[in-house]
Design a protein around this nucleic acid. Structure first.
Length: 870
RNA sequence: GCCGCCGUAGCUCAGUGGUAGAGCGCAUCCUUGGUAAGGCUGAGGUCGGCAGUUCAAUCCUGCCCGGCGGCACCA
């Protein structure tokens, strides 16, 4: 018996696949197509276990679909722009471009070692001039369509990375990459009008039925569509005894607010419960008030200081300032409401102004209790008595019937909303409106290592987009990265050019595009990465949408939302036919590992730790010294906690197949998997045992009627594994393979009857093909060993005979009053009467029923029998 | 606070309205010419708690407890 040696066998088959060009994607219109894509990696230079799991999953799907007869596209590329290259440049004085391409080379060879069934002829990096030049082309198209604009706005500024961040990239008040507390700055920024698509982006989520519910919910929350009413309050008079600008002007309204104060509400039904009108501290009206009221100005200053982080905002006490201004209630001109500046109102949501109904909104209630403003309930909960119902410290937000509300009385909430909107619209004071939490996508980044924005600034013509003939706008070769900030801006000559409109001197835009722009369309470029146009529409029409996209949940909002937006925008521009990029999405779990620390608190790498089992507990010590080590929590593998395991070291010891098998086998694909050395050893033992089983099969098996039982088990296995892969239940498919291997071992080739040998031959032929998606190298070696035709990569997926997956007889447990008391054997599909006959003939069961009267016999076909007796 | 996921063997996790499973770990034994290995056998579980539906609940429903994730002064 030759021992299985992955070090020789695995490279041999990888070479054979390359020689056969086995994974080239061909748009064969006679076949159904399947596009499987894993989120492309950032070329950090090093493969980690998370990559192994991610790409192994995609590879399982790709190999499976190929065997099932699909034309498969399974490409790979590099998300190659971004800060790490600039940081490396600053720290080590290397050229970001050279650094990035070296990393790509290293990672490519590591990825190839994984044996992935990728069409490498389609590979590109987003930092390739060809790629980002095409990106500049469609950027100009969207500019022309008005989907790209530039304006001065308050932005999130990351003081460490020295760049602007999109709202999506600010997490708990900190930069998503640097972790630095984000500052607010006013800058001229390029933005994309993702808000134009807010409705579609919400509505189309419903059709994404192969996306995880969780991701759809997260996107829906992020876009945050709400329906309500926008309307204007008209000003009444100023507070008595004070000199108001508005009063001096002879009217009730301050300058600039002659049309009134516009507010947004989702609860127009509660208008009769209004207590005050509130505006944000940043509201223009607040500024107008502050201009002549130092106390107001002081209050506004205080508000600005307070709100630094989300956590502080959340716990901040509600504070307000009565401006003295009064507005008229829209349904009762005699009813006046005070206008307050309040610290809990956000300027960038809705109109930055609200009307407060304390009885039915907790924030408003807290505010009114503090400042002793009236609380008037207008929604009566079901079953409550109108005379007795009071609101204490808890606002009532449930369903009910309107009261205290004049013409709205008696209506339910939805009817009252509709009626209030109708009345406001009839008065000409406002209209029903949809408001989104989503903001436009700020895409300017003050960094050099990104896609240059293809416009110039001309003193005569202003902002001028370049003609497409001037593309690509490439980086200069000699960028100086010794200092922080934008190296493109600093470059002595690059930005100086001529205006395409007037021919005079002009300056290039030195901002580059957010790297999320790069990843918002790469899947479409894979359809034909060599096309002259950004997207080869004919090829894209064949391959798109991506049938199965696989990646981490961390991109649930950012990348996936941007990609959906760009797809829709390019579709509207006629460059794409699909309106959604990813028909199926799978978010895989992370690879985790135990953490280890010395008594001193220092993290220790797993390879330096020895684990000793003592009964059912485990103890850890430093390898070598024996110094005790504390076993900590199981966490995502990370350099900072030193709980990583290097894939190449695992490949070296156990081979690629064992590593692939383990990360797929030990937990469901969407959940985290805990890496353990015992686990990968188990996978390795499976690999060797599989090989032993194939190796023990004689080369010449005589034709014979195969053993029926083993044959049934084989067909059952084919069915189970096929269904498991289809359902992304790789772990349970692998569990079935483990069980089946045990069955094969129970029917060894040595001394087997011709019938068993023949059945084994059929079983092994299927088995080699069933393991191919998981352990492709082992599968090829096994396939060759039993004389399979060609390579497994070209072999069709095994099929099963449904009749053979069912047993001919069934063992039915017999329950008496729900407790198991015995079992009987009946033919498959036996009718209740037949089963009852068998039951009555059974002496054992009869004994159990001694002295009892049978009330009822329940027969569940092929499953169980329950006798109800007393 | 709202939404979602999870709770099954010592550990990590499958699974099913009807006989409780796998890998690892543990124990016993075999092998000592696969040997920094291989194999046999076995122990171990009120399926988080309570109630309901049902002939029958680990599975369905409700409530509760515990853990994780997302969102959150969004009017």
């Amino acid at each position: 018996m030759a021992r299985y040696n992955p070090k020789d066998i695995e490279p041999k088959w990888r070479q054979a696949w390359t020689d056969a060009d086995a994974f080239r994607a061909v748009a064969d219109r006679s076949k159904p197509k399947y596009y499987v894509l894993e989120m492309f990696p950032y070329p950090s230079g090093r493969l980690h276990m998370g990559h192994v799991r991610n790409y192994a999953m995609g590879d399982v799907i790709a190999r499976f679909k190929r065997a099932k007869g699909f034309a498969v596209l399974h490409p790979m590329g590099w998300d190659a722009f971004g800060l790490p290259a600039e940081n490396a440049a600053m720290e080590r004085g290397v050229d970001p471009k050279a650094w990035t391409y070296e990393n790509i080379d290293r990672m490519r060879s590591e990825l190839k070692e994984l044996g992935l069934s990728i069409d490498w002829s389609r590979e590109f990096a987003t930092c390739d001039v060809d790629y980002y030049g095409k990106q500049q082309a469609w950027f100009l198209d969207l500019f022309e369509r008005g989907l790209v604009y530039r304006k001065e706005s308050v932005v999130n500024w990351d003081p460490v990375d020295q760049t602007v961040l999109a709202n999506e990239q600010v997490v708990d008040g900190r930069g998503w990459r640097s972790g630095a507390v984000v500052e607010k700055r006013k800058l001229n920024q390029w933005s994309m009008r993702i808000t134009d698509y807010a409705d579609q982006l919400t509505d189309d989520l419903k059709a994404l039925d192969r996306w995880p519910e969780k991701v759809r919910v997260m996107q829906e929350n992020w876009i945050g569509r709400s329906k309500g009413l926008k309307f204007r309050f008209h000003f009444a008079h100023a507070r008595a005894g004070e000199e108001m600008e508005s009063a001096r002007a002879g009217g009730a309204a301050p300058d600039g607010f002659a049309d009134g104060l516009e507010v947004y509400t989702t609860r127009p039904d509660t208008l009769y419960g209004a207590s005050f009108v509130g505006i944000a501290a940043d509201h223009p009206l607040a500024a107008a008030v502050a201009a002549r009221d130092p106390a107001a100005a002081a209050f506004i200053d205080e508000c600005r200081k307070g709100a630094a982080t989300e956590a502080e905002i959340e716990t901040a006490e509600k504070k307000g300032y009565d401006t003295g201004l009064r507005v008229k209630h829209p349904f009762d001109p005699a009813w006046e409401l005070p206008v307050w500046i309040a610290n809990f109102i956000l300027m960038d949501y809705g109109t930055g102004a609200i009307f407060a109904c304390p009885a039915h909104d907790q924030r408003d209630l807290d505010f009114c209790r503090k400042y002793d403003l009236p609380v008037r309930p207008v929604v009566l909960p079901p079953g409550e008595d109108a005379a007795a119902f009071r609101v204490g410290d808890e606002a009532y937000v449930g369903p009910g019937t309107l009261y205290n509300s004049d013409g709205l009385d008696g209506l339910d909430i939805e009817a009252a909303k509709a009626e209030a909107i109708r009345r406001i619209e009839a008065q000409g004071d406002g209209e029903g409106a949809t408001v989104f939490r989503l903001r436009d996508w700020g895409v300017s980044r003050q960094r050099a290592w990104g896609c240059p924005i293809p416009v110039v600034h001309c003193p005569t013509d202003g902002v001028v987009p370049l003609p497409k003939s001037a593309l690509p706008v490439a980086h200069p070769a000699d960028i100086e990265f010794s200092k922080a900030g934008n190296a493109l801006e600093r470059h002595p000559t690059w930005k100086h050019t001529t205006c395409p409109k007037c021919g005079g001197p002009a300056v290039r835009e030195t901002d580059t595009l957010d790297t999320f722009v790069d990843s918002s369309w790469y899947f479409a470029r894979f359809a034909n990465p060599h096309a002259a146009e950004p997207i080869d529409k004919s090829e894209a029409d064949y391959w798109l949408p991506v049938d199965q996209y696989i990646g981490g949940i961390e991109h649930a909002v950012l990348h996936l939302l941007y990609a959906r937006f760009v797809t829709k925008a390019l579709a509207d521009d006629g460059q794409l036919s699909v309106r959604e990029p990813f028909a199926g999405l799978f978010t895989q779990g992370m690879v985790t590992h135990e953490t280890y620390r010395r008594q001193t608190g220092e993290w220790v790498e797993p390879k330096d730790v020895e684990i000793v089992a003592e009964g059912n507990t485990r103890r850890a010590a430093l390898a070598g010294s024996g110094e005790p080590v504390v076993i900590g929590d199981i966490e995502k593998m990370s350099k900072s906690k030193k709980n990583t395991v290097a894939p190449e070291e695992i490949f070296e010891v156990y081979g690629v197949d064992a590593a692939r098998l383990f990360v797929l086998s030990d937990s469901p694909a969407e959940r985290d998997v805990q890496w353990t050395s015992g686990g990968v050893q188990g996978a390795w033992r499976f690999v060797t045992r599989v090989w032993d089983e194939f190796d023990s099969q004689p080369a010449d098996v005589a034709a014979a009627e195969p053993d029926a039982e083993l044959r049934r088990a084989t067909h059952k296995l084919i069915r189970q594994v096929t269904e498991a892969i289809d359902g992304f239940r790789f772990n349970s498919g692998i569990a079935r393979l483990y069980e089946f291997l045990n069955l094969l071992k129970a029917n060894p080739a040595k001394g087997a009857s011709p019938a068993v040998l023949a059945a084994r031959q059929e079983a092994l032929s299927a088995f080699a093909r069933l393991i191919a998606p998981f352990t492709p190298h082992l599968a090829e070696e096994c396939w060759a060993r039993i004389g399979g035709e060609g390579m497994v990569v070209a072999a069709p997926w095994p099929t099963f005979d449904a009749a053979l997956t069912e047993d001919s007889t069934k063992v039915l447990p017999v329950q008496v009053n729900g407790k198991r008391r015995g079992e009987i054997t009946a033919p498959a599909g036996a009718e209740p009467a037949e089963v009852e006959a068998i039951l009555k003939a059974d002496a054992d069961i009869a004994a159990k029923l001694e002295g009892l009267t049978i009330r009822k016999i329940i027969v569940v076909k092929d499953r169980i029998v329950n006798i109800v007796a007393a």
